[in-house]
Amino acid sequence: MADPILKVEDLMKSFGGVVATDQFFFDIQQGEFHAIIGPNGAGKTTLVAQISGMLKPDSGRILFDGQDITGLSAAERSHLGLARSFQITSVFRHFSARQNVALSIQARQGHSFRFWKPAARDSSLTEPAMKILSDLGLANRANVLADNLSHGEKRQLEIAMALATDPKLLLLDEPTAGMGAEDSARIREFLGGLKGKYSMLLIEHDMDTVFSLADRVTVLVYGRGIATGTPEEVRGNAEVRAAYLGEDDAAHA
């Protein structure tokens, strides 16, 4: 059997006395759509930061496509094919939508110690950038400054920038954060279209998105994975109900 695309072994991270990640194990198989859910303060963001290389774990190992990446920088992980989007919209506000995506494409085309040719007129950057924007339905917004895009469009651009690095694994940190129902549905549909093409790790609050898309769900509570399984298994897990879905729901079920 092929190596899992991502394998996390015994990850530990604490801040002072607070244990944010506690003996966490999990894996994502090739092509799998895996979701992590958990109440506020469960350590989801800390976990994303460690997987993407922004934060160093205290102990434990992270393997990407069979390779130990625990000691690698965020940039090095990106080059191996691990892309992330941010929970708090993190686009380049003073660049146009196209420039935002082009910058991601530039990153994957080797070093950028190129000092003379204007990047804005480099078709090896602009053409693939336009293609990705078109796929997301943002083609007509390509020349708009990211700052002037709507919230929903910014969230889409956020994903477009991650896709443009040509990843093997997409790490999506609450892609529907702050979105209205209509925009959320659109993102859900878009993510559904990506399913199977990329291995994906989705961190999400929105249960509709998680349960309609994920192959497997891991539930994180106080930094620990308390359950992993198909959406149905997780939904039926008593411990999960108690910890996360709420006693009320359990009582009604």
């Binding site: 922004m54 941010f86 660049f95």
Partner: peptide
């Protein structure tokens, strides 16, 4: 002028705006 508009210039300007994002998309800033 050439520098600022080149690929190198885009990286520098990107670092100013959001260095964490630059690292996330693969630039050793």
């Amino acid at each position: 002028w050439r520098l600022i508009n080149s690929r190198f210039g885009m990286v520098i300007r990107g670092c100013h705006e959001n260095e964490a994002r630059m690292q996330a998309i693969g630039f050793p800033t």
